[in-house]
Design a protein around this nucleic acid. Structure first.
Lengths: 275, 275
DNA sequence: CCTTGACCCTCCCCCAAGGGGAGGCCCTAG
DNA sequence: CTAGGGCCTCCCCTTGGGGGAGGGTCAAGG
């Protein structure tokens, strides 16, 4: 029988020499003979078929161990259908995992490109806006505003698929309260069902005074002050709840620099018609 | 400042102790202080944020090295958009690779399940069949039948996406020839364009005698003999080219056992109308 | 004060699938 | 006789930690 040196066999099969030695060590593809004097490996022509089968299975993402086990008990495609199906399921799972990550990445990219767009060409003046009704998932709570984090997480986990806008807060108190505040953490959603203390509903639109606040959240009272003063000068009255929309807050990954946070405050006018 | 032992910090962040030590070694997440007397690590509260960022980035399939480099130059999601996009592209490629493998696996599974179905309930008698016209990609060649392998590979590579049936051969000789035969290797396709010496065209249907040959290809002459004898008894004449359809041949992975190969021989009748 | 159990440390080996290279033997051609 | 190429073994390297040995430390209970 014709036999080839490891280099010749490597060229014929495309498997690197290192790999051939490794496969021997792994009991996967043994040389036909080894010269006891100098240790040279010689591969017979029959090893070519086996090498091709190994390459096929490796290219289908079977591990070396799996290939070894498959080769031990099979010599026809029909014999390994179960393993092929299992591998397929495994690949489907892996693909799902990767596409989930891709979705997350796309979400972050979209979020940031929107924020970037918002940053350019913004003025920090009070303006009157008309807002449309909006479907949200909300979670009402009492306490300090800064404790809203877990609630946002909870909403995000529950409604992650259906999110349709920036996170928001509805504020049911007349004035800013350091603690014991009454507020509702919410996220716009395309659809979804209420569950536990999370309520999906539509909040009405209307006319509001809007002010974009730039900076950390503990400086929000200053911006509220500007709004109250503005309203007082013009004899306007506000309806509850008012809203905060977190245009740019802590990122999905980094907390970011609070000096660059952007929060839109929306104070709805009392006599505006709400639809 | 509050500081935690490695075990406490591990529970708070969900990162295993081993991982925390590893991250220190990798200069990724250093303890706030290390007791020089006993080597105990202590983590300050500020390390929690960093740990969370690291977890986020790791869960997005960034390597430890990448995370280290990102953390060195960024503190806001907006700073790493480029890296996120690059990672997204990388994941898209990986996903494509995996889905390509899944397609290959699905193809093999389909092929084998068809073969299995064929195996059951088959008789090896000559029967008369009417065959419809069929679109194929063909590659005509002269030589020995056994040299058809590379041609099948070539067709498979070129028309892989559009394959629509089992590989076939058209035989233009009157009788079986060991060498110097004139035949055309072909694959049914849904669509495709001719290129080089590969020709896409429709071959006509018609009435034929069909015989399922079981066993290795070098035993085909015996089955041809049966067909010729059958035709002679009945005064039938054959038209060229005749066809072989490789119902079950070498698998995609294993060569398989030639004793189980199934080849359908189709000899078209001279006076049958061809459409 | 002593003990005990939990916690922490370093150090070493392990996984997969080879890649890179050092140091040395072998074979053939010029 | 030498040069070059091919082959050998052996060792270290990659990723992201996991497992465990052997030994020091800490806090609480007796």
């Amino acid at each position: 029988m014709q036999h080839y040196t490891i280099g010749e066999f490597s060229k014929m099969t495309g498997l690197p020499v290192k790999t051939l030695r490794f496969y021997q060590e792994q009991d996967l593809l043994l040389p036909s003979s080894v010269d006891p004097a100098n240790g040279y490996r010689y591969y017979g022509a029959d090893r070519i078929d086996r090498a091709r089968v190994i390459q096929s299975l490796r290219s289908l993402e079977f591990s070396v161990r799996e290939v070894r086990e498959l080769l031990a008990g099979a010599d026809d495609d029909a014999d390994i259908l179960g393993a092929l199906e299992a591998k397929n399921r495994q690949l489907v799972n892996e693909t799902r995992r990767l596409t989930a990550i891709q979705r997350a990445l796309a979400g972050i990219l979209k979020h940031e490109s929107e924020a970037r767009e918002l940053m350019s060409g913004v003025d920090y003046e009070i303006e009157e806006k008309t807002i449309a009704a909006l479907k949200i998932a909300g979670l009402r709570m009492k306490g300090a505003y800064r404790d809203c984090g877990p609630s946002f997480s909870k909403l995000g986990r529950r409604y992650g698929r259906h999110l349709a806008g920036k996170p928001m807060m509805l504020i049911y108190d007349e004035s800013y309260r350091e603690s014991d505040a009454d507020f509702e953490v919410c996220m716009p959603v395309k659809r979804g069902d209420s569950r536990d203390d999370m309520v999906v509903r539509e909040i009405p639109g209307g006319t509001c005074l809007s002010l974009l606040h730039k900076g950390p959240y503990d400086e929000l009272p200053r911006s509220y002050g500007r709004l109250f003063e503005y309203a007082k000068e013009r004899g306007l009255e506000f309806a509850l709840p008012s809203r905060e929309v977190y245009r740019k807050g802590p990122g999905m990954i980094f907390k970011g620099n609070p000096k660059r946070y952007l929060t839109e405050i929306q104070m709805f006018l009392k006599d505006s018609e709400k639809k």
